[in-house]
Amino acid sequence: MIKKKIVMLGSFAVGKTSLVQRYVNSIFSEKYLTTIGVKIDQKIIKVSNAEVNLLLWDIHGEDDYQKIKPTYIMGSSGCFIILDGTRKATLDVGLKLIETVKQTAPNSSIIILINKSDLKEEWDISEDDIKNLKYKGYEVIETSAKANTEVEYAFKRITQLMLN
């Protein structure tokens, strides 16, 4: 079976763990529990008649307290850059992480997930910001781990990109 490594990257409290838990275990918890280190989950997905074993690297959030080691990104075929739509600062962190991914795993497929779409009326990341990201050539998907919106699609889409 094909194995593909996907890294979940983003600032702290953007919902990386929640997205993985929603996708792998179909669960969601309101409680914020900060991730220490790395947690690796696996899920088998069937895309275009091919079975793919996704190794989902849920990496701790990037901030002043914990820095992401570039070695975590090495060997990844796909990369989700996760932003919290309600916190504009997570966009800056995400853009910096994209640069790290481009240097460490240049062939990795990148998708930007703007999470917390259930709180869209509170979003700080504007439509212009999103247009700008798309203009730069990034694929952007608005997700909600809480409402289970576009989570399944996001993982399916990145698998398609990785297989191509």
Binding site: I36, G37, V38, K39, I40, Y72
Partner: peptide
């Protein structure tokens, strides 16, 4: 699976053939 990363770091360290140790980052297993 975490060792995909740590193996790389460990191999770099072992190649130096010098007595000592390096520590990995933290990872979670269920």
């Amino acid at each position: 699976p975490y060792f995909e990363v740590f193996n790389f770091e460990a191999n770099n360290f072992w190649e130096k053939k010098k007595n000592g140790k390096i520590k990995s980052g933290i990872w979670t297993e269920t």
